[in-house]
Amino acid sequence: MEYDLLLEHITQHIQLTQEETAYFTALLTYKEVKRKQFLLQEGDVNRYACFVTDGCLRSYSIDKNGFEHVLQFAPPGWWIGDMKSFIAQEPATLYIDAIDDSTVLLLLKSDLDKLYQQVPKFEHFFRVLAEKSLATYQHRLINNLSLSARERYENFCQLYPSLIQCLPQKQIAAYIGVTPEFLSKMLSQTPPKK
């Protein structure tokens, strides 16, 4: 069933009754996203919380020189979105697209607000997610400012072990903040630590 992974994820933090589960799943929209298809583009409003059930998505920005800067990859079991756009319902600054054919579950912002009213324990669940996300982004920012490219690559390998072999080096390079050529040269010189 398409909800199993999400419900498993939720029950790590809160316990739902059958009625609460039924109410929650009725709010979700199942969507297939083809490889390279956009779920969100800069300037659009991020209207949905997005949970990946299969495949892989990424969020990124494009600078004035046309270079992509990957903020996040979202394999199965991960949430992805432009949080500022989602919370304020204002135009997004990020792009979100599918790296592979993917499936996602979408929860409309207005339905999430209703969910908080009808099943208050979801406020706890999403607060825990937001806190973990904030801590992760702060840690990543500090690492980007203080670590070498090799160390950033090793952190990437720890965070996304399932993606190391399936992502193109170009995507990994955009995540750790180096050119694909630099990453290729770095990896050919010394293998990463296990």
Rank of each mutant, 00 (worst) to 15 (best):
Q89M: 02
D63Q: 07
N143S: 14
Q118L: 00
I96Q: 06
V52W: 10
V104C: 05
E181I: 13
K185W: 05
Q158L: 13
L159Y: 09
I10E: 12
D101G: 05
K193D: 04
G66T: 02
K109R: 06
L187S: 03
L163I: 00
L115D: 08
A130L: 07
S102E: 07
L134D: 04
A74I: 02
L39E: 13
D82G: 11
L40S: 13
L40N: 13
L94H: 10
K31E: 15
F126C: 02
V178L: 02
Q138S: 09
Y95E: 00
L28K: 01
V178F: 03
Q18A: 11
E42T: 14
Y175Q: 07
Y137G: 05
T25E: 13
L5W: 10
S146C: 11
A149Y: 10
L40E: 13
F51T: 05
R150K: 15
K109D: 04
C50L: 06
Y175N: 08
Y3A: 07
H124M: 12
D63W: 09
K121L: 08
R58N: 01
T29D: 00
N155P: 00
G177P: 09
L106Q: 10
S61Y: 09
L147P: 02
L5I: 15
A98D: 12
E151L: 15
P120W: 10
P91E: 11
Q171H: 15
H9D: 13
L57M: 10
Y95A: 00
E2I: 10
E131Q: 14
P91K: 11
F122A: 01
R35E: 15
E20R: 01
I10D: 12
G77K: 13
L115Y: 08
A173P: 08
E42A: 15
T136V: 04
I80Y: 00
M83W: 12
I14R: 09
L27R: 02
A49Y: 07
Y175R: 07
Q117T: 01
I142T: 09
D97Y: 06
R35M: 12
D100I: 00
Q118Y: 00
G177C: 06
A49E: 13
I142E: 09
Q169S: 02
Y160M: 07
R127Q: 14
Q171D: 15
T25A: 06
G66W: 03
S162C: 01
K121T: 11
H139N: 10
P120T: 04
K170I: 05
T11D: 13
E123K: 06
N144I: 01
A74N: 04
T53R: 07
A22F: 07
Q171A: 12
Q41G: 06
A173K: 04
T17R: 00
F51R: 04
N155M: 12
Y30E: 13
P76I: 01
Y137I: 12
D4Y: 11
Q165A: 15
A174M: 08
L40C: 13
A49T: 03
A174I: 07
M186A: 04
G77C: 12
Q189N: 15
K34A: 14
A174L: 08
L163F: 00
R152A: 02
E2A: 04
L39I: 13
